[in-house]
Design a protein around this nucleic acid. Structure first.
Lengths: 191, 191
DNA sequence: CTGGATGTGGACAGACCTGTCTACATTCAC
DNA sequence: GTGAATGTAGACAGGTCTGTCCACATCCAG
């Protein structure tokens, strides 16, 4: 998920965005001052402000960038964990295990942004809601067609959020994955 | 849950703590400078630092205070929503509806603190984990005795975390409660 | 060549932040 | 009365933060 390693070959705007993505996700949005983004992106302040009129504009761009990146990662991860015997629960567990155990895991960037900034920056919650809506649609497509497909997909998405937060809080994947397994087995309809 | 209204009758330390509780929960820990806590608690800086050697010490005290307050609230809320026909799922939904619809709802103070501060302040995650552990024990006691009681309680606690964050993100209780209902009905063993 | 787009190296302003410190006042137990 | 505990009113230091701005340099299409 981190395509940022070769960012020095990129134009300035992309370098800023890739750097912001890395720092905001790793350390937190509020904990990252723009001077640090600027220094690590290797640009100057004028360049920074030419591309992003304010820190808030950068934050919104970061979240849109993260959304694309994460949804692409999800697509690829679902392919790496193929659905055997139509078992969407096991597929999701495989996918989320991969994420929770990844080196730079620090929870969901959208939920984190809502917690850090939600109150005074309504666009953040809007982007987060759109992200979660799209994830829920991906989940629904994994489920067999049935009258309560949407309802189940939403419940699963909420369960996933809980597990994401647990893995973040505990800095360990196993308890969250165990809870996730219990819930998904109860929630994913047999096909 | 907010016993802070008559805080001006309290000794200085309690006033600081009650004020910090209100501001940290409402606006965020990082978004609240100590000068604001001091001004709203009606103390001076010397008094503040006499009672709390640093902002971090205040944060830890805030979380311990919040834990006691929230666990007391949970006990009382469970009594207000009695368990009819041994239906723990409906009881929990009633309790959490009450919380999600409350005036000052802004999610779980512990999860929020972990997101805001977790990386550079490990004690925060420890307190959050202890809090979640105790909540899980309360949940387990609501369930009928069975071999997978602990496992179910953990899964339910994780589902609750997801719903808590959803209600916060969406600033609406209904979708989170609907998802919670779907999950709890699947997870709470029949008794 | 020319001008627009893009980028550089910072300095600067004003606001906010955490924590240190002085001098003084009040209360209460001994 | 005395001293410890507790509280007051700030001023101050140094750091961090976001955003504004100057002067200059490079690249590229027309």
């Amino acid at each position: 998920m981190n395509p940022d390693k070769s960012r020095f070959a990129l134009p300035a705007r992309d370098r800023i965005l890739a750097t912001a993505h890395e720092l905001f996700y790793r350390d937190g949005i509020r904990a990252t001052g723009i001077d640090r983004v600027i220094a690590e992106a290797g640009v100057t302040k004028v360049t920074f402000y030419r591309h992003f009129p304010s820190k808030n504009a950068l934050i919104l761009a970061y979240l849109e960038y993260r959304h694309r990146l994460w949804m692409d990662w999800l697509d690829e991860a679902l392919k790496r964990h193929p659905c055997r015997a139509q078992d969407a629960a096991e597929q999701l567990i495989g996918v989320f295990r991969e994420w929770f155990e990844s080196e730079h895991y620090r929870g969901c960037a959208f939920l984190n942004a809502v917690v850090e900034l939600g109150g005074g920056f309504p666009e953040v919650a809007e982007i987060a809601c759109r992200h979660k809506h799209e994830v829920t649609e991906v989940i629904a497509r994994l489920l067999p067609e049935c009258p309560e497909r949407e309802e189940r997909a939403l419940a699963i998405a909420v369960v996933l959020d809980g597990a994401i937060l647990r893995a973040q809080m505990e800095k360990a994947a196993s308890p969250a994955l165990a809870a996730l397994q219990t819930s998904l087995r109860a929630l994913v309809p047999a096909s």
